[in-house]
Design a protein around this nucleic acid. Structure first.
Lengths: 236, 236
DNA sequence: ACGGTTCAGTGAACGGTGTTTACAAAGTTG
DNA sequence: CAACTTTGTAAACACCGTTCACTGAACCGT
């Protein structure tokens, strides 16, 4: 059956339970409550036992971040699956609204993932990548929004080209093939700019840092997404 | 001379020393190191003594945030003072670059102010207000960028009008008078959108959450600010 | 100048935290 | 069965925020 030995299965199981307990604590009582002793208490164990599974408290939190991002990713993909693939704008809207909804529904998780300056996670396969992959896929499948290739600062060409490579490979691993020509540097630049605005709005809303009390931020968000779509070149 | 009694002066002095010590700890050793005992140790005092000045650790952090925002505000105002007031775009650029430079130079402070979900500060007189006041001032003093008043979602009219009021009063308190007509709802909306983008870029850069390793983010930032200016309607 | 009051600061204590260490009890394997 | 690895424990360490009873000095009205 499984290649793993009995011991390895048990270990993996416990590891899952630990992170599940940590997750529950995070959601129900906030970041401060995610303590080794509390986690251990949850599964009827003593705190030092956790060191058999994680090198430190920080290490556990880091891995918890990975779990969270993976879950969010899956949720966004689910939202996306319900929309026919030729309705490009609706797909972008779904991802953006899904991201915002997730952030507002899981502020603790969002804060954890976005509040730690550098130390917590590997930058590669993270939350953003979901949005970005989707964006790349959509732009690639779109009738070529025609961006001025020279419109992006030449100092960025190197970075953008590298990112272009990553995106093309990521999209390919999802089954869809795109060429560098279809996903131009200009398009990549637009994607990154969209990410800046999407992230900016959501973070400001979650952190309550809008300059005034926005009684109903949703129409503002809708308007911004529409503007983004129009800036990218999607006017169907 | 001073209205304050000797006792009040000593108290204010100590209060300042406490926050100074807290600030130093934050900058040199990170948020986690800002502990009551460490602060007390810094000024040759025991931890419980701090409770004569602040109700709790959280309260101290909250007031520290205020200090930080005030400092940043002063720094931005300084940058601004060096530019003749008729060079509108240069003033906006100065504020944006100043904000980014401050955030990158003080990542710990930035994280503290931007990482705490709701509990840490009053939303009114905060960091953002500096940028927003400046923006309002500039837009008001500009030859009317002519925004479509109807371009903003009607659901936002209430909030925007309230914010318009705040901004007009804030600008007035800085000596400059503007009317509601000069600072239209469309303009306000543009200001808020600019704040979203500015904050989004800076936070992503400080938190290292750009989707790819940006070897040199400055040209990207410059490009974004230019785009913002053009979107607002400043093309001088 | 004195006596009461206010106030800054102390030291001890409580319950909590992450982490290390030595040790016991299982499970695994030859 | 014996040797070994893995998993968990208990005790301890140093640190944390916070409370409480207490001291000593500064202030203030008389």
């Amino acid at each position: 059956m499984t290649e793993a030995t009995r011991r390895e299965r048990l270990r993996a199981e416990t590891e899952r339970e630990i992170r599940q307990a940590a997750r529950t604590l995070l959601v129900t009582q906030g970041r401060e409550a995610v303590t080794l002793r509390a986690i251990a208490r949850e599964l009827g164990i003593t705190a030092p036992a956790l060191y058999r599974y994680y090198a430190s408290h920080e290490d556990l939190l880091r891995q918890l971040c990975d779990d969270i991002c993976q879950d969010m990713s899956r949720e966004l993909q689910t939202h996306l699956a319900g929309i026919s693939s030729d309705q490009v704008r609706e797909q972008v809207r779904a991802v953006c609204h899904g991201f915002r909804a997730w952030a507002l529904a899981h502020p603790q998780e969002f804060s954890l993932v976005f509040a730690s300056p550098i130390d917590a996670l590997a930058p590669g396969d993270q939350f953003g990548s979901v949005f970005l992959e989707v964006a790349a896929q959509l732009i690639a499948s779109h009738p070529a929004p025609e961006h001025d290739h020279d419109d992006v600062p030449s100092a960025l060409h190197g970075d953008l080209a590298a990112f272009q490579d990553v995106l093309i490979r990521a999209v390919a691993s999802h089954g869809c093939e795109v060429s560098a020509a279809e996903l131009s540097l200009g398009a990549i630049y637009q994607i990154v700019q969209s990410w800046v605005r999407l992230y900016g709005h959501v973070a400001l809303e979650v952190f309550g840092r809008f300059p005034f009390a926005v009684s109903n931020p949703e129409p503002m968000f809708d308007r911004m997404v529409d503007q983004m779509l129009s800036d990218i070149g999607f006017r169907d």
